[in-house]
Amino acid sequence: MKAPLHTTGEVLSSKRVGAYQHLTVVAPGVAERFRPGTFVAVSVDGTRLARRALWIHGVRAVGGHGPALQLVVEPVGPGTRWLAERPVGARLELTGPLGRAFALPKEPVATLLVGEGYAAAPLFPLAERLRERGCQVNLLLAAPDERHLLSALEARRSARAVTVVTADGSVGRRGSVADVVAGVLAQAAAEVVYAAGPVPTLHAVAAVAEQAGAWSQTAVEQPLTCGTGLCHGCPLPVVGEDGVARVVRACTEGPVVRGDRVRWAELAGTRPGAGGPA
């Protein structure tokens, strides 16, 4: 894997689409190293020490600048609001690409990509890579409502079949990922499932994939402090290849991990402190 960079980027454009702010950020070197499933850690608001993690939604060539990063920000707290308010030309200190990317299948198999909210961001560039390898791409996009549905139009271009579910039924079917994923998976006859979204959604997808005998890769978001593997502040309880329970760093050994390796019940915080050796 190529090493990440720590650099200063510049906001080339910032536009509101529904509930999200879409930023295009030129960050020399970072875009070139990008693989779907990796993220950037961004410094926010001067005095705030913890960094904010953002998925890389894509890489776009911008005239005169070379490849630029596309980021999607949902303003939910001080750091993400600050990011959403950055004007064109603003400088952003960022490190990336960080973390383990989605693993691609060696054979041209049928795949299902499940994304909820802004977290669907890394699935779009993944869909592209999968299609390049001859994999059939089916997409299941979910959101609380239409405003939080990421790039549904773009989705129709990059996938063979797109299913949309919203909690309020404002677009697509009414419901949740957990309600529909088993049916969509069966219909797609997918052998590999990729998922990105809140923990309960990932848990549901991993469970359904396992039942169906499909291989799953989940992009797990945990609160991060550094994002670079230095602080051990992002515990992710997993079961290792050797069958031994471990706690790994979500930012470095993740964020993408095999769905059948995550100890989901502990992650949901039902049993704080439980877990084997690091």
């Binding site: 705030r48 913890a50 051990h232 515990p235 706690v247 690091a278």
Partner: peptide
Amino acid sequence: PRAGGPAPRIAETPSGLVH
């Protein structure tokens, strides 16, 4: 080996981190 403590492990405060 030590697994470490439960999450959340670190919180941001003005000009500091509590860990």
